[in-house]
Write a protein that binds this DNA or RNA. Structure first.
Lengths: 257, 257
DNA sequence: ATGTCTTTGTGAACGCGTGCACAAAGATGG
DNA sequence: CCATCTTTGTGCACGCGTTCACAAAGACAT
């Protein structure tokens, strides 16, 4: 990850741990919901439950931002919403471009969660000339040729890549060359970028594969825990059918030549 | 999740670290690409570069699976593809259902990365009666009423939730009650599930918010003083705007410099 | 004021993940 | 068969993140 190689890290004295930063949006979402219900204050215990984390972790996370709570009472919801928004940089407007307006790109363009959090879709870009001018989510798609001009004109520093894997690296390089320094990558490829550029990736199939691993493990444990003859038979049948795991190592399908 | 009892048997049979599991799909993708180029063997250094990780980390990851490499040579690509696929449970077929066929759900249904890795979209489910029967990605959408029957008939254990936030928890509960034990959640909500059910979440706006944080760090160094001045004014406005403050009343309007 | 009660903020211990560095293993060449 | 060279597999140390547990801080009642 690019963060690992950060030269002269923490340009700021107060370094907020990466894990904490990743949770701040979670807290913000829970707090926004409370704010809409006009809840004035919330305890770390309540907020932690709403955000799905441990309360001690939440308190420690907030401690990195400062002492914004009141002992014996909790946290002021409105105030905390503001503080976290400020810390995340959401009090300013972030123009973003989405490159690759396929199914996913269109879904992203229509996604309401962006606009509500200070992100503004400045442009949609696609390589297909047939797409040019066609409105998606009320925004006309522009051709890739315009990429550099769009970035420059709108002062875009955040780009979203939703192209096929084959085009991602090239698009990435053009974005970076044009001035983009943060990239959200949906293409199933490892992007290589120069220092100073942040990349976050979202790979849909990877998430499913991780789930499949745990699912397989659960099935195996279940059969193992209940030493039931029927379940054991099913497990063997499944193993034989799909080359699953046996009692020990399995027979390799292909051996080194 | 509120319960917090996530890990049942952290290291049971063969304790593969969670971090390693999360990287296996990455290796698999790189290996598949090599396989398609008919590359017979690959060194840890090369593969690590292709996967975007450290070579020592990769070797340690593989060591959890067993000793599949040959010293002085590297790893047999085909053999490793099979071993990782088996470990991830991708040698068997995983029927999945997608609930919520909006823009995102449709994009997921069309996503090619699923089918190519052993995942089969068994059904698309939506609450809108107008959607029923309409084909998306060649699969007719079915109404939510059929949810339990679909899960049962197809032996589905993995569900994808792409509904609006408000409907997610309810859908989740129905999925779990019907037998689903792994959920990939795209709705911006914290799902609470019973023990034994795995949930992975993908929140598009959270990723952007994390990028915005780093972007602000990068860009906000020289303009820091000016920004702070503006933000301080906004802080007062925000504090004054707070309506129902309750009995406690006073809220600190400015944070310590 | 004073005591009690609630909740924050944090010091400290612990566990996990990462990266270094190197010995062991095996291929390769003479 | 031996020497050399390449690359794996891993012991070890370190740093980050998580969790516990508790003292300090403040609200609230009397």
């Amino acid at each position: 990850m690019a963060t690992g190689r950060t030269h002269r890290t923490a340009t700021r004295s107060r370094g907020i741990p990466e894990a904490t930063v990743a949770r701040l949006p979670l807290y913000l979402r829970a707090l926004t919901a409370l704010s809409e219900r006009s809840v004035p204050t919330v305890s770390s215990e309540e907020l932690a439950a709403a955000a799905g984390v441990n309360s001690a972790k939440l308190r420690k996370d907030f401690s990195y931002l400062g002492s914004y709570g009141t002992r014996g009472v909790g946290y002021d919801v409105e105030y905390l919403v503001y503080q976290i928004s400020r810390e995340l940089g959401l009090t300013q407007d972030w123009p973003v471009v989405i490159v690759g307006i396929g199914n996913l790109g269109a879904a992203l363009a229509n996604y309401g969660g962006f606009a509500s959090r200070g992100f503004r879709v400045a442009a949609l870009i696609d390589a297909d000339p047939a797409m040019a001018g066609k409105p998606v989510a009320g925004i006309p798609v522009q051709h890739t040729d315009e990429l550099e001009k769009i970035i420059d004109d709108n002062g875009v520093s955040i780009g979203v890549i939703a192209t096929p894997a084959g085009a991602a690296q090239q698009v990435c390089e053009r974005l970076v060359a044009a001035g983009v320094t943060s990239i959200l990558n949906f293409a199933p490829t490892v992007l290589s970028v120069p220092d100073g550029v942040d990349v976050r990736k979202v790979d849909l199939s990877i998430e499913l594969q991780i789930l499949a691993f745990h699912e397989q493990r659960k099935a195996g444990e279940e059969a193992e825990a209940q030493a039931d003859a029927v379940l054991a038979a099913e497990a063997e049948a499944a193993a034989a059918k799909g080359a699953g795991k046996g009692p020990d190592g399995d027979v390799p399908a292909v051996m080194p030549a």
